[in-house]
């Protein structure tokens, strides 16, 4: 388990836990909840912001917020 900002581009993971006090509610509304699948699709230069697919939503957040989302990578089969 590690923070989301350490995910490799193209990698899929599952959200394990979120530090809710540091996350905007909007992010949670868009599906950033434990148990949902998350993948890092792209990043802008310097790996910030991050372009994610969370559940079925496509969105971008900044690295500093991504630190508060803990993920467990899914093994490729």
């Amino acid at each position: 388990m590690f923070p989301l900002d350490q995910l490799v581009i193209g990698q899929k993971a599952v959200i394990e836990s979120i530090k809710t006090d540091f996350l905007p509610l909007k992010l949670i509304e868009m599906g950033c909840l434990p148990g949902n699948e998350i993948s890092l699709l792209y990043s802008a230069p310097y790996r910030d912001p991050l372009y994610l697919k969370i559940d079925e939503a496509h969105l971008a957040i900044r690295k500093e917020v991504a630190k508060y989302i803990m993920v467990k990578p899914l093994m490729d089969d």
Binding site: P24, K26, M30, P49, L59, I61, V65
Partner: peptide, 10 residues
């Protein structure tokens, strides 16, 4: 407070 969330629409 860096509450930046932007949707990437189709």
């Amino acid at each position: 407070k860096s509450y930046f969330v932007v949707e990437m629409p189709n």
